[in-house]
């Protein structure tokens, strides 16, 4: 397991101070702010947060696929040390799919219903890699086998496949140009537990087989436990905690992470109760000042209302909360004054 503090190897992907705004009816809404993290080759990192927290926006920004009403307003993304032109669609083209590729949220329901899936997998190979038709078909068959679908099934149309199968097709498409980073945006959210387990197993197997770095986006903390090394928790557009899976579950530091873990029913815990987090996450239009979580936080302090806590290194990971490191008495008095 990799330690996030260990800086020995150069990271394959480094995101620094990323900020994205959406323009909506004339006003510009800050959506993600100050997102910074690094990923090593072959590492699996989960990005966890409630819907609306900005996970998809982060993924799209990294892949240079933001919608036209979005703008990168700060920060940069580096791939193997080189800055990626994430706000220039044309310049991003050589990097996308062959270095970083994305399994889009809900895209398995957007496969073209009138084409056989083999054709839909072969097409990007033809366009991106300049393969001939036959080469592309051969590559598509290879990809299908890779994701656990027999090549003969490639003749099927999307509606003939179950949700799990279609998600496998999406993964095959993401792998077409042999990327070294795959971003999976909620790849199992619409699936039932058995299919979810199969897809997660597939992703884990592909990761070690192809030495892929994986960014797994999900709102469900429990799915990351078995297939990721590291977890980043996002709340209202900011990273609030980052640490190894073992650390996060055994010793969560941010109050949000703690509550998130406690709100998952856990039979192994024995007690039949959950502790819901009160309230709803803030909407884009109504992000509060200071720490965005404070209205739902049981240990909010006056200082939380004034200034956004920074994501600081603490123990094995990083956390953005005034509780960490614990303030000395006089500091606290000063901050709360």
């Amino acid at each position: 397991m990799k330690n996030p503090c260990q800086q020995a190897k150069a990271p394959i992907l480094a995101v620094e101070g990323l900020a994205v705004d959406y323009r909506l009816r004339g006003s510009s809404l800050p959506t993600i702010r100050d997102v910074s993290f690094e990923i090593q080759a072959g590492e699996a990192v989960a990005l966890v947060g409630e819907s609306g927290s900005g996970k998809t926006t982060t993924a799209m920004a990294i892949a240079g696929l933001l919608p036209p009403n979005a703008a990168v307003s700060g920060g940069e993304v580096r791939y193997r040390g080189d800055r990626l032109p994430i706000d220039d669609d044309a310049a991003m083209r050589p990097h996308r799919w062959s270095e970083i590729s994305v399994v889009f949220q809900g895209a398995m329901n957007a496969l073209n219903p009138v084409h056989r899936i083999i054709k839909q997998i072969a097409e990007p190979c033809q366009l991106q890699l300049g393969m001939s038709r036959d080469e592309a078909i051969a590559r598509a068959r290879e990809l299908l086998e890779l994701v656990g679908i027999s090549a003969e099934r490639g003749r099927a149309y999307p509606h003939e496949l179950s949700g799990g199968m279609r998600q496998r097709v999406m993964i095959a498409m993401a792998l077409a140009c042999s990327p070294s980073i795959v971003i999976g945006d909620e790849p199992t959210t619409a699936l039932d537990v058995i299919t979810q387990a199969q897809i997660l197993k597939l992703l884990t197997a592909l990761r070690s087989q192809l030495n892929l770095a994986l960014i797994l986006i999900t709102h469900d903390l429990s799915v990351v436990a078995e297939c990721c090394d590291r977890v980043m928790i996002m709340y209202a557009g900011r990273l609030v905690e980052d640490g190894s899976v073992a650390d996060i579950f055994a010793n969560p530091k941010h109050p949000y992470t703690k509550l998130l873990i406690e709100s998952i029913p856990n039979p192994e815990h024995g007690k039949r109760m959950v502790r819901p987090i009160p309230g709803d996450p803030p909407t884009l239009q109504h992000r509060p000042s200071g720490c965005a979580f404070r209205s739902r936080c049981p240990s909010a302090m006056p200082v939380c209302a004034t200034e956004v806590p920074n994501l600081k290194r603490w123990e094995q990971g990083r956390v953005a909360c005034y509780l960490h490191p614990p303030m000395k008495h006089e500091e606290k008095a000063l901050a709360n004054a």
């Binding site: 537990v193 387990a197 199969q198 436990a225 579950f249 856990n266 192994e268 815990h269």
Partner: peptide, 19 residues
């Protein structure tokens, strides 16, 4: 049960082959 992801690892789960 085996397919269900668990927050705190999966210590006591019998190792039945996955479905």
């Amino acid at each position: 049960r085996n397919a269900t992801p668990h927050v705190r690892g999966h210590s006591d789960r019998e190792k039945l082959p996955a479905l």
